[in-house]
Design a protein around this nucleic acid. Structure first.
Lengths: 129, 129
DNA sequence: CTGTATCCTTTTCGATACTG
DNA sequence: CAGTATCGAAAAGGATACAG
């Protein structure tokens, strides 16, 4: 169990300058409500803007636009405009975006596996308080 | 690359009820600024409250207390009070907390590996705009 | 259809002061 | 030492209206 934490110590050193910390840059995106959902949707196939809007349902247009721009800026997704009338824009995972599915899936697997224990821990904690 | 996304589709279905979504419950903690840093510190050894405060340096007392409570509530860390004078409180990773280091390390590894590409993508994106 | 711009509410979080 | 309580600034995010 010591092997996995080696990169974590590296993160701590790196954190001396928060803006330069790779981990913070990545995790900030995981934390926001929508990035993971968008990446998840695009893991299946490319989507158009309106399709994503319907797929995710309770995302606002504002946040969808903004999150797509952020993901594009980081190079995780690619944006292709089709100059039809009306215009159509397609989003897809970039190769780097696809590679991100691996650690993301590890997190998702862990979450599913331990969620019952987490719920139980919360109930216990609430009872104790 | 299709194998890793299977749990992601499960997440999408689960998201129908956001409060019941295991993934959201876990990733919400990753997103906040301090959880990962605290877990990282505790990966090395147990820490007392004041030690953590110094180790993380720019965390406020308020956020340290709050984040520790959340992690404890989720069962990721354990809290032990030593009734000395002055009192001393020690925090350590629980077994579940230690198991979390595995997917966390996967994310950290990915972040370090791709951070150069991300920075490059951002520069490119900024130039294009 | 695919966005942008603005307003305004909600949430987050640091600073500060105080307690056992 | 290890917190708790309160306040106010700042940021995030939804709703709405409008544009190419």
């Amino acid at each position: 169990m010591t092997a996995p934490i080696a990169p974590l110590t590296q993160m701590m050193r790196e954190y001396a300058d928060p803006a330069a910390c790779p981990v913070r840059n990545v995790l900030d995106h995981l934390g926001d409500k929508w990035s993971v959902l968008i990446i998840t949707a695009l893991a299946h196939r490319p989507y158009r803007f309106g399709e994503l809007r319907r797929e995710i349902a309770d995302i606002s247009q504002r946040m969808l636009t903004q999150t797509l721009r952020d993901l594009q800026s980081d190079g995780l997704i690619e944006r292709e405009v089709f100059p039809t009338t009306p215009p159509s824009v397609e989003y897809r995972l970039s190769p780097m975006g696809k590679s991100f599915l691996v650690p993301l899936s590890a997190m998702v697997d862990w979450a599913f596996e331990h969620f019952p224990a987490i719920k139980e821990a919360r109930a216990e904690f609430a009872k104790a308080a």
